[in-house]
Computed example of a mutant assay.
Amino acid sequence: MSFTLLSLRCFNIFVSHLLLSDFVMNSTYVCFLYIFNIYIIIDAESALDVILNALAFEFIIRLDEEITLSDWWDPQKRWITAGTMELIIQNTLRLDCLQSPKLFSKAFNIPEEEILEKCDRHPKLFLDEKQALEDENNPIFMNEDEKIKARCKEIAIELGNSNAIKEYEKSPVYFSLYERYLCCCHGNGMFQRYNHYRTWGRWENILYKSPVPDLKHFFETDDEGEPILSKKLDDIHHTKRKPFLNFSQNNTSHTRRFVRHSFEVLTFVHMIRGIISRLRNGQLKSSFLFFLDSVGQWIAFATQLVFPLYIIAVFCITCIYVFNH
């Protein structure tokens, strides 16, 4: 967990794309330390130097674990929870649909012109900073607790009470200086990243516009008049011509998929394919971050491949040296 925390703190700027940062910190970092440790031990002149050097590197490896176990380090696991939720959101929310009339229309079967009309003809649909700020301060979209806090915030601003303003207007929280100065696309820190999508008025206008599917052909009534699943469903099969949207016939084992992915990463196929796909979609910034992610993956996989070979080579050299002397 501690390496996960450090990876989230150090690589938070790339959290949208560097999903393997935890893997890198848990594997590559440790492997590099042991490789360097073995190199120094081999070059040591006495047994005492070997022991002291080995203990020093073990101290470096365990230092991170000891720090994160202390009481002052994120006692409520706020950072790791936020980082985990960030990864879940990144892999669950279809943000591309929420800011594209064409994709939203295709995904939810709503006419594109109707979507634009309900979203004030904004080209980014729900992604509108100005409208989100208006809806955030609109009492219509608040519950009773939020209305009280909003009123307290207004009074604090009128009285110039800085302590009360901080209580009701939370300042952006950042993991590190990297996120504060480089990750300007989010702008709102760790816990308010998707505030610009909170255009509640547009959500209310479009929420129930998607047509409700007709489910009558899925059910039939039995002899007692109770609804049951239709027996005709047994005759419906997944085909290439009419595929099921949520059906996958990928029966490849986890081992084979891991080997295939490792091969694609090490041969740069994964990198080239991902960059080309993003460039075609006009995602220039995403392409750059994906490139950094691919480089990190390549280093991680290459290290895992080289490390056992390095250990074997050191063992053979040591045996030869012992036999010769």
Results as ranks from 00 to 15, higher is better:
residue 161 N to Q: 09
residue 111 P to F: 06
residue 325 H to D: 09
residue 95 L to W: 07
residue 164 A to M: 15
residue 272 I to Q: 03
residue 247 F to L: 07
residue 16 S to N: 07
residue 206 I to F: 01
residue 160 G to I: 00
residue 166 K to N: 01
residue 34 Y to Q: 15
residue 63 L to Q: 08
residue 34 Y to C: 14
residue 150 A to R: 09
residue 265 V to Y: 02
residue 33 L to K: 03
residue 99 Q to H: 08
residue 117 E to P: 15
residue 199 T to P: 13
residue 256 R to Y: 01
residue 285 K to L: 12
residue 253 S to L: 00
residue 199 T to M: 05
residue 93 L to A: 13
residue 165 I to M: 09
residue 107 A to S: 12
residue 118 K to V: 14
residue 270 H to Q: 04
residue 28 T to C: 09
residue 137 N to C: 08
residue 185 C to S: 15
residue 161 N to L: 03
residue 114 E to F: 06
residue 308 P to I: 01
residue 195 N to E: 02
residue 226 E to R: 05
residue 305 L to E: 03
residue 129 E to S: 14
residue 108 F to P: 12
residue 305 L to Q: 03
residue 291 F to H: 04
residue 224 E to P: 06
residue 250 N to S: 05
residue 50 V to N: 08
residue 147 K to D: 04
residue 292 L to E: 00
residue 111 P to D: 14
residue 200 W to I: 08
residue 296 G to E: 03
residue 226 E to I: 11
residue 14 F to I: 13
residue 95 L to C: 13
residue 185 C to M: 11
residue 109 N to K: 13
residue 165 I to K: 04
residue 96 D to T: 10
residue 53 N to F: 06
residue 181 Y to A: 11
residue 87 L to C: 04
residue 293 D to M: 12
residue 170 K to G: 02
residue 323 F to Y: 11
residue 189 G to A: 01
residue 66 E to M: 13
residue 284 L to S: 12
residue 181 Y to H: 14
residue 27 S to K: 00
residue 127 L to T: 10
